[in-house]
């Protein structure tokens, strides 16, 4: 199973993503330069962290116009799984693939820390390896990770179960002290309405091996793999039926 890791000029977690994915059995990742125009060969797409185009203008504002983004948009509409971490999350919001926006941290400081998140939705393609309420530990490193959405969008996000992860304390309580950047309602990660595009500010790529302090990030990549496998099994089980008809 092959994942694409998109490289924009200024991406700096592309190697982390590649290493994290390649470290998992059954998964393989390859770089795709932002000037490419097709992602047909890939089962899933990862937009890594970094500072694409120097984050000039706004984070992700210029990257969303890269040639590869047309393929990201069309493949996501076709149902392919798309994961954006950190800067990748910002690009997905700027591209309109995810609702809301990421603005400057409430503290005005770049935050570099280990955070705890509570799994709010356990049947998403990205978290079904986790139980609802499970706690995940991953690092954050960003200056503009404060999630914002207007009240109407926020209502929809909650009503449609699109808030996948919230910052919590180590007891799983959603409290302001556990919020590293001032995100509205402690939101750490959201998906689109269809559920196949997921963005989060923390770094699963930097938490995919116990030696890094946490292996919780690997659960995200494994969930993606299991989702894709399951969808293939469904497709495969439909095939013999069709074959029988012909016979």
């Amino acid at each position: 199973m092959k994942f694409a890791v998109i490289q924009f000029p200024g991406s700096n977690c592309d190697q982390d993503c590649l290493a994290a994915i390649n470290g998992l059995e059954g998964l393989r990742a390859e770089y795709v330069w932002h000037k490419e125009t097709s992602l047909d060969d890939f089962d899933a797409i990862v937009l890594p962290g970094g500072f694409a185009y120097g984050d000039y203008l706004r984070c992700g504002a210029i990257a969303r116009f890269s040639p590869i983004m047309r393929a990201v948009v069309s493949d996501s509409r076709a149902g392919k799984l798309v994961l954006g971490t950190c800067n990748g999350f910002q690009v997905l919001c700027e591209a309109g693939l995810l609702p809301g926006a990421l603005v400057r941290n409430r503290s005005l400081r770049f935050v570099c820390d280990m955070v705890t998140m509570r799994v709010e939705v356990d049947d998403s393609p990205f978290t079904h390896g986790c139980k609802k309420g499970a706690l995940l530990r991953m690092p954050v490193a960003h200056g503009e990770g404060c999630f914002f959405a207007d009240p109407e969008t926020l209502r929809e996000l909650n009503a449609n179960r699109q808030v996948i992860l919230r910052y919590s304390d180590r007891d799983g309580r959603i409290v302001p002290e556990a919020n590293p950047n001032g995100s509205i309602e402690n939101i750490a990660g959201i998906c689109n309405r269809e559920g196949n595009v997921f963005g989060l500010m923390p770094h699963p790529d930097r938490a995919s091996d116990g030696r890094l302090g946490s292996a919780d990030g690997a659960k995200i990549f494994r969930s993606m793999m299991q989702t894709i496998r399951a969808s293939r099994r469904t497709t495969a089980s439909e095939r013999p039926a069709a074959a029988r008809q012909v016979a």
Partner: peptide
């Protein structure tokens, strides 16, 4: 300009 509903921590600091 940031919309009125959007928190502007930079503005608040200034």
């Amino acid at each position: 300009m940031p919309k009125a509903a959007v928190l502007d921590p930079q503005g608040n600091a200034v």
